[in-house]
């Protein structure tokens, strides 16, 4: 591998020169945008939660499931209409971190590979971006649950 550890002096020198010309990421601006857009998503989510509490027999506890489903459905529509990627370029983490970002990752991959057919295209590529989130999410949840069980049995908590 052309590992980053063994840079030659030439490479070092060039990278310093190149750094000078590189456009920096506008971190502060990105943070502010992410904050507002992410907050807006959560506002919509909260509105949907109240919708389910008011009109259906859901409590605050149980309303979260249909809310998540609805948010993902909205993300699906926005992805399909080609709005979500533009929103993502504007908001960055603001649209990637909420559950809608996860939905977008799955749906965009599914749309992209539609041309390769349903089984080998959509089926096998749908989770190519989101798959690692699922794997490591489930795995870390398992580890934490295991630790908690052990600690409770030992009487620590």
């Amino acid at each position: 591998m052309g590992g980053q550890n063994k840079k030659t002096p030439d490479q070092e020198k060039y990278q310093q020169l190149e750094q000078k010309h590189e456009t920096k990421r506008p971190v502060l601006k990105n943070c502010i945008r992410a904050f507002w857009v992410g907050g807006l998503f959560c506002l919509v989510g909260q509105a949907i939660t109240y919708f389910y509490i008011y009109f259906f027999n859901f409590t605050e506890q149980t309303a979260s499931n249909p809310t998540v489903a609805t948010m993902i459905f909205i993300a699906m529509l926005l992805t399909g209409f080609g709005v979500y990627d533009r929103l993502g370029q504007f908001a960055g983490a603001g649209s990637a971190v909420p559950v809608t970002g996860f939905g977008n990752a799955v749906i965009s991959a599914a749309i992209e590979h539609r041309t390769e057919g349903f089984v080998l295209g959509v089926g096998s590529n749908m989770f190519k971006l989101a798959g690692s989130v699922l794997l490591f999410g489930v795995f870390s949840a398992f580890i934490i649950a295991l630790l908690k069980t052990i600690l409770i049995n030992m009487g620590v908590i």
Binding site: D85, R86, Q89, G92, G101, S108, A109, L129
Partner: peptide
């Protein structure tokens, strides 16, 4: 990434 993926 897929064209519709909302990455920045």
């Amino acid at each position: 990434y897929p064209t519709e993926y909302g990455g920045q």
